[in-house]
Simulated scan of single mutants.
Amino acid sequence: MKQAILLHNPGAGDEDHVKSDLVKEIEHGGFGCVYFSVKKDDSWKEQLDQADFAVVAGGDGTIRRVVKELVQRNALAKKIPIAILPMGTANNLSKTLCIDSQLEQRVHIENWKKSKKQRFDLGVIKNADTTDFFMESAGYGLFPNLMQQMDSVDKSKAKTAKDELKLALQVLQELTLHAEANHYALKADGKTYEGKCLLLEVMNIQSIGPNLVLSPEASTADGLFNVVYVDESQRQAFAAYLQKLIDGDHDAVFAYQSFEAKELLIDCESVHMHLDDELILPLKNPLSLEVRENVLEFLTTQEQDANSNR
């Protein structure tokens, strides 16, 4: 019997109920299971080597927290795959891995026995002072601004995850109309890109933020970043596109400027930056970014489809 370590990020008041249900479902699915709340303490880190795979029950931020521990472990430590029970608001990582957040948890658990290990690359970002990693994206401009705004916006009328995602799109659209554009210079594969942008994202997955698909062709295992940017000249067109999404037009498209790269140097004057869902002060320029291949493995039942989120 394979042993799972269940790492759960409980919401207010739901831990005992969800813990009992999840453990029961996982054991009913034919797996051993030990439960840890990642909010309580870090004791789960000492138990990873005892498990055959880790189950992360939470959103993108919880997955990053677990991955951070796996990345920092000694090279001789046991490498274990990750299964996701998506419980976040956006679940962008799950979407890229073709893990449907609308399915019942029981169905996800049943699928683990027929799942495959999906290789997953990480982005490494560094300068003379700092080295860090990202799973989803790193970028400047609108998205770190959005993260900052969403910390203070009134969410009392957003009763569901769908409502909260729509609210985030509305805030992003307002930011697009008024945000200052930032000068950037990129060097990748012998080419130089330079201009003033509203948004600059180095993508490792397909969508970020309020499920906004920036790079539908992105793969987590191709050894490449998808670099996506919106120039200042595209401000009105991008705002109009966001409004269509807010209005429910799921067929709306936008002509993002993009290219692929395995390594790149970035110099950007933005006062805001993010790594995945963490808002940080910009690192000292220039920044070096590179793909580290096959660092992680996720359990999935579907092959990534580059057109699935178009």
Rank of each mutant, 00 (worst) to 15 (best):
Q3R: 03
L6K: 00
L6C: 01
H8S: 00
P10W: 09
G11H: 05
A12C: 06
D16F: 11
D16T: 15
K24F: 02
E25F: 01
E27F: 01
G29Y: 04
G29I: 11
G30T: 12
G30F: 08
G30Y: 04
G30N: 07
W44P: 01
W44N: 00
E46P: 00
A51H: 02
A54K: 00
V55T: 07
A57C: 11
D60V: 07
T62F: 01
K68N: 10
L70I: 08
Q72L: 07
A77W: 00
P81Y: 01
I82V: 15
A83P: 05
P86R: 02
P86D: 09
T89S: 11
A90E: 06
K95G: 12
T96L: 08
D100L: 08
E104N: 07
I109Q: 03
K117A: 06
D121G: 07
V124I: 15
I125A: 13
K126Q: 14
N127A: 10
D129L: 12
F133L: 06
F134K: 02
E136R: 01
A138K: 04
G141D: 12
L142N: 05
L142T: 08
F143Y: 14
F143H: 14
L146S: 06
M147T: 05
D154P: 06
D154W: 02
A158T: 12
K159E: 14
T160I: 12
D163N: 04
L165N: 00
K166P: 00
L167T: 09
Q170S: 08
L175N: 02
L175M: 05
A179Q: 14
A179S: 15
E180I: 13
N182C: 12
Y184R: 02
A185C: 13
L186R: 05
A188I: 13
E194D: 09
C197R: 04
L199P: 03
L200Y: 05
V202K: 03
I205E: 03
Q206T: 13
G209P: 13
N211P: 03
N211A: 10
L212A: 03
L212K: 04
V213T: 13
V213Y: 01
L214P: 06
P216E: 04
E217C: 07
E217H: 09
S219E: 10
A221Y: 06
D222L: 14
V227F: 10
V228A: 05
Y229L: 09
D231C: 09
E232G: 02
A237Y: 02
F238N: 01
A240D: 15
L242N: 03
L242F: 03
D247T: 10
D247A: 06
G248E: 11
G248V: 14
G248M: 13
H250Q: 13
V253W: 00
A255D: 15
A255P: 14
Q257H: 10
Q257Y: 00
F259C: 06
A261V: 12
A261I: 12
K262W: 01
L264Q: 03
L265V: 14
L265R: 09
D267V: 13
M273R: 03
H274K: 01
H274T: 09
D276H: 07
D277C: 03
E278G: 05
L279I: 11
P286W: 11
L289F: 14
R292K: 15
E293L: 07
E293G: 10
E297L: 03
F298K: 07
Q302L: 12
A306H: 11
S308F: 12
S308N: 10
S308C: 11
N309K: 14
